[in-house]
Computed example of a mutant assay.
Amino acid sequence: MNSGATMPPTTDPDKIFQALRPAALDDDAEHAYHRRRDSDLARAMRADTVTDARDGVVPGRSRRRPVLLIAGVAAAACAAAGVIVVTDQGDGSSTKPPGREQAAPYSDARSVLLAAAQAAEREPAKPARYWYHRERTTSRAGDLMLRMDKSTGRPRKTKQKAQFLAYVSHTQEDWLARDKGDVTRAIVGIDRTTTFASPADEAKWKKMGSPELEPWSAKRHVNDYHEPMRLTIGQRTLTFAELSKLPTEAGALTAELRRRYEADVNDPKYPLQDSFPQYVWSTAQDLLAGPIKPGTRAAMFKVLAKQPGLRLVGGVTDEKGRRGVAVAMPPEGKQTHVSGDAITEYRLIVSPETGRLLSYEARRSAGRPSLTITYEAMGWVNALGARP
């Protein structure tokens, strides 16, 4: 999400999500980092980009989330399928180890998404003062280490190359105010942990001087914003009111997305390079995790179901242990993580029974995903600090 009417968002390299986020939050290293696609990590380490929000445009190559943005408030912020028996614990969680694939009663990705659409349509619409969002991000550390610059309080690159395999995880909570005058709150750096593939990997890291692995603070930090919320689709910002007016019928939503896509592609200053299917995929990831009407969520699933190139992965459990079904899309062109590993596909894990997005992954040919974003909870609440 993008917010901030008066303060133009600034970004340090990138593009994994068209972020449905407050713009001011995108100025926060922690907040911005996990809202961009994993493929952007490499780009983020190569160049600096600046977002120009004065005309409501978010540059395509710096607008996306998982993976990375550093700037503005950053200085302060840095202050194999088979039948498996599972036990449902009542909240959609499972006793099955995360990431393992299960048999699923779906023939293709389209059937999964249409089932999710039907479930979304049944959800009652109950908007309140704040949209609550909690997600946990786990990212593979890159081969370009970071060190904190004591004079600026910001991370900077070093010429050291990683000789180990490690993953960094952290959680963030947001209360996004719907109405002008209410405060938006983001709590970042919650329960930050670092895990190594082996004791030998950790020993190598320590031998290198224990450099910073990612550009976000290891400490919990509360940020309050007093600016009106601005959200994004593609490269254009919207208010909460505009977001609530998005179509609830698949044909109309397709037309609206196509109109926005063409505008982004033909933008004279920041022409979008993505294909329309990739644009829909990215937008779906953002909208399905955002404060949209149940009808719009259902329509988004239907629009996504019509896109070419989708693959049914099968039944899985996410990092939180919840059962879902994964659908995948291959990357466009050569997408790499800063570790140098090629990204072979992106995945969305959805719950066809509830119509909810559970997780996003950027995966390599084998092993643990380079990036995992687990959407732990979301929904409308009436007060800061309240949770659905």
Rank of each mutant, 00 (worst) to 15 (best):
Ala104Gln: 05
Arg37Ile: 11
Met145Lys: 05
Pro66Ile: 11
Leu253Ala: 01
Thr254Gln: 10
Ile84Leu: 15
Ala252Ser: 09
Lys320Tyr: 09
His34Met: 07
Ala377Arg: 14
Ser151Asp: 15
Tyr270Asn: 13
Leu20Thr: 12
Val325Leu: 02
Pro127Ser: 12
Gln118Ile: 05
Glu353Gln: 13
Gly379Ile: 04
Thr152His: 00
Thr193Pro: 01
Gly56Met: 09
Gly324Arg: 00
Arg46Met: 11
Arg46Val: 06
Ala71Glu: 06
Glu319Lys: 07
Gly82His: 15
Val350Ile: 10
Ala125Val: 03
Val86Trp: 14
Asp40Asn: 09
Ser39Val: 04
Pro124Arg: 02
Gly355Cys: 04
Pro127Val: 03
Gly333Asn: 04
Leu231Trp: 10
Ile70Gln: 10
Phe240His: 11
Gly72Arg: 11
Ile373Thr: 04
Pro369Arg: 05
Arg368Ile: 08
Ala362Tyr: 03
Arg129Glu: 06
Glu376Trp: 04
Ala75Gln: 14
Ala109Met: 04
Gln172Val: 14
Asp38Met: 10
Gln102Ser: 13
Leu176Asp: 11
Ala19Ser: 10
Asp91Asn: 07
Val316Leu: 10
Val303Trp: 03
Ala328Gln: 06
Thr138Asp: 11
Gln307Arg: 12
Ile373Trp: 00
Asp108Met: 00
Trp175Ser: 10
Ala23Asn: 07
Lys161Pro: 00
Ala75Tyr: 02
Ile70Ser: 12
Lys302His: 03
Val280Gly: 00
Lys96Ala: 15
Ala44Arg: 09
Gly367His: 02
Thr137Asp: 14
Leu113His: 03
Ser139Leu: 15
Thr194Asp: 05
Ala328Phe: 00
Trp281His: 10
Ala128Cys: 04
Gly209Asn: 08
Gly290Ala: 14
Ile190Gly: 02
Val183Ala: 04
Tyr130Leu: 01
Thr184Ile: 06
Ala162Asp: 01
Pro369Glu: 04
Ile292Leu: 09
Gly321Val: 12
Pro268Phe: 10
Ala326Met: 03
Met7Glu: 13
Asp14Glu: 08
Asp182Asn: 02
His170Glu: 13
Pro369Gly: 02
Val112Glu: 02
Gly379Met: 08
Gly234Phe: 00
Ala47Gln: 08
Met329Leu: 13
Ala77Leu: 13
Val67Ser: 13
Gly92Val: 01
His133Met: 12
Gln285Cys: 12
Ser139Val: 15
Ala80Val: 06
Thr49Val: 13
Ala162Asn: 02
Ile233Gln: 08
Ile373Lys: 02
Leu213His: 09
Met1Ser: 07
Ser359Gln: 15
Ala42Thr: 11
Tyr375Cys: 01
Gly4Thr: 15
Val222Arg: 11
Ser198Ala: 12
Arg185Ala: 08
His133Arg: 14
Pro105Trp: 03
Pro308Asn: 01
Arg64Met: 07
Arg260Asn: 09
Thr237Ile: 10
Arg122Val: 01
Pro228Tyr: 01
Arg140Val: 10
Gln160Met: 13
Ala177Ser: 03
Thr87Ala: 15
Ala200Cys: 06
Arg154Asn: 13
Thr195Val: 08
Lys157Val: 01
Ala250Trp: 13
Tyr132Val: 02
Val86Thr: 15
Arg37Thr: 11
Ala177Lys: 01
Ala200Ile: 12
